[in-house]
Simulated scan of single mutants.
Amino acid sequence: MKEWKIQFSNVDNLYLDGDGKIDGRGSIWWQSCMKKSVYGISFDCKRRPGALHFNNCNGLQLKGLSHLNSPRAHISIKNCKDVIVSDLEISAPDESPNTDGIDISNSYNVQILQSIIGTGDDCVAINGGSSFINITGVVCGPGHVNVKNCTLTETQNGVRIKTFQGRSGYARKISFEQIVLSNARNPIIINQFYQDKGKLSKGIMKAGAIEITDVTYSDIRGTSANDQAIDLRCDNVVGCSNIVMRNIDITPGVDCPETYAVCNNAHGSATETQPRVPCLS
């Protein structure tokens, strides 16, 4: 059984554009996953293929296609750099197991733009060895965004969620797991008041904010380049809810005497978290 239904390897400057549809017809595979044998997960579930895989394809552009009902992940991007993915629609039922929308691993400078993703697992999963990943204008749900097993070394920001002031909508079901920080600035930050530097409104605060909820940070360890290691800046009216932190240990890095957390109108829980986050009970 092939690991992927469609696979491209070692093809530079590949350009795929159109309004066609890739239907993985995954329902029969999902059924096998939902039926556990006496020995655990069925063999058919373990060997089900993903739909579309790119390996070592630099300069890849993928635009306009619809992806439906993959047996496993819909799109995988591995060992690639300078990738633009835009205007896609990816969908699978909420109960379909492990049907990630886009999986990224060991890749550099990947942009996911203006797409609609709703699956039974991660909308976008950013895995180890990846850097300079930009996700903009993506509608996610059902499903969630997962960033896992990444190392951030001397980055301007660590794990950051920023939403534009005065906009409406939501950012939810986002998780950051197993992150290693090495002298990173702003290791953990949520900013509901973000504005483009070129479009600042001269101190005028716009009404409204994008709702941020169901965000989990777990197993994040390392050093911070500045003393404000955790910064949760949430709108006074909309706020941030169900923010969960567990097993966080951020210590002072080079030229940083201490670390602390600041927060405004963020609600949730924190366990085994250093520095202490005062607004999370």
Rank of each mutant, 00 (worst) to 15 (best):
S32V: 08
Y39D: 11
H67V: 14
S70C: 04
V85L: 06
Y217H: 05
Q31A: 08
D12N: 11
S218I: 11
V145S: 09
N157P: 12
G120P: 06
I112G: 06
D196Y: 15
K2T: 15
C240G: 03
Y170S: 07
G40P: 03
N10W: 03
Q274N: 09
I243S: 00
N191P: 06
D44G: 09
V254M: 12
G268Y: 00
R233E: 05
S175I: 13
E177F: 13
S27F: 00
L16D: 05
S37F: 07
F193K: 07
S86E: 10
V138R: 03
T216C: 08
G203D: 05
C33N: 04
D19S: 10
N55W: 09
L16Q: 06
F164D: 13
T163M: 01
G198E: 13
V11T: 09
A266K: 01
S201E: 13
N264P: 00
G137H: 06
A184M: 13
T223G: 02
F132G: 15
D23Y: 02
I189F: 11
V11H: 07
S224G: 04
I116L: 05
V85K: 03
A184Q: 13
R48Q: 04
T251W: 01
I210N: 02
D214N: 06
T251R: 07
I188T: 06
S9Y: 09
K21Q: 13
W4Q: 12
Y194A: 10
I179H: 08
I41T: 11
S269W: 07
C45P: 02
I174W: 07
R160P: 08
S9T: 13
D82R: 11
E211K: 12
C57N: 09
K78L: 13
N186S: 14
P257V: 09
C57K: 04
S130H: 04
S66P: 09
M34S: 09
N236M: 14
A266Y: 03
I230C: 01
S241L: 06
S105R: 14
K199T: 15
C234E: 05
T216H: 09
C256R: 09
L52I: 07
T136W: 15
A209W: 05
D227N: 13
G128Y: 15
F193V: 04
F164H: 12
P252G: 05
D12Q: 08
I116H: 00
H53T: 10
N56R: 10
A184H: 11
K78F: 14
V180W: 14
D214F: 06
R47V: 12
H144R: 11
N106Q: 14
D219K: 14
S107K: 06
Q61F: 10
K46G: 11
G141E: 03
N98L: 10
A125N: 14
K197C: 15
C45E: 00
S42I: 02
S168Q: 04
G158A: 08
C80F: 02
P187W: 01
N226G: 10
F8H: 08
D227I: 12
D82H: 10
Q195A: 12
I220M: 10
I77W: 08
Y170G: 03
I204P: 03
L232N: 02
I116R: 04
L14D: 02
N109M: 13
K63M: 10
